[in-house]
Amino acid sequence: MVDVVTANNRCNFSESLEAMHRDRKKIFVDGLKWDIPVVDGQYEIDQFDTEDAIYLLDLDAQRKRHLGSVRLLPSTGPHLLGSVFPYLCDKGVPVGDDIWEITRLCTAPAKDVEPRPVRRRIATALCEFGLLYGINKYTCVAHVQWLSSLLAVGWECEPLGEPRQVGDETIGAMSISITPATLQMFRNKTGSRTPVLQLQAIAQAA
C-alpha cells in the first residue's frame, strides 16, 4: 500500500519520513553524487521539503519500513522546475492547479528490497493520486536517458524543451499526462483492481 502523506497527517509517519530522508541521502548524495544539502550528515532534505510537499510513501505491511517514495509539489508554488531549472522549458514553465511536479522518486537501497514491484506500486499510486485530485499532468526534471525508459514503461511523456548540459550531466524537463488509461495500463501489469493508495489520517481543510 502507498500512503499519502501531507502536512496534516505527517505526525503519523515521522519514522517512515526519517527513513525516506536517510534513503534519499544514500541514493542521491552517496550514490548519484548530487550536490544537494545534507542535514545532520544523514538526511537529504532541501528547500522544497515544506508543508506544501505531498509524499507518496510505499511502506511495508506494518507501515514502518520505507520501501520507496516520491515527492509531489504543486506547480503553483515553489518547485524545482520553476525555481531552479526554468530554462529547461522552451515555452515557459507549465503552471496550473492540474499540474504537479514529481521529484525524488526512489526505491530503498536495502539489499532485500526488490525495486521493480516498488516502482510499479508508486507508478500506480501516482496515477491514482492524479485521477483522484484532478491532476492532468506531472512535470519532472530528469536525465535524458530516463525519458526513453519512461516511454518504454508506457507513460505518456512529452519533452518541455531541449535537454541541457548541467555540470556533468545532460538533463531535460518533461511532462507526463495522466488519464484513466494510464492507470489501467499499470493495473494490468500488476493484476490489481483496487487502489494501492491509502489515506490514513484526518486532514480537514477548512
Binding site: V4, T6, N8, N9, R10, C11, N12, I54, R63, D97, E128, L132, Y133, G134, P195, L197, Q198, L199, Q200, A201, I202, A203, Q204, A205
Partner: peptide
C-alpha cells in the same frame, strides 16, 4: 473499511482511514 478520499472545494480533504486514526489536534 478502506477509504480513498477525494478533493472537496479547492483544497485536499483527506478522508480518515485505518486503525491508527488520530484526532485532528494531533495532526497540527
Amino acid at each position: 473499511v478502506h477509504y480513498v478520499g477525494a478533493p472537496q472545494g479547492d483544497r485536499l480533504v483527506l478522508a480518515p482511514d485505518g486503525a491508527q486514526q488520530r484526532p485532528l489536534e494531533a495532526a497540527e
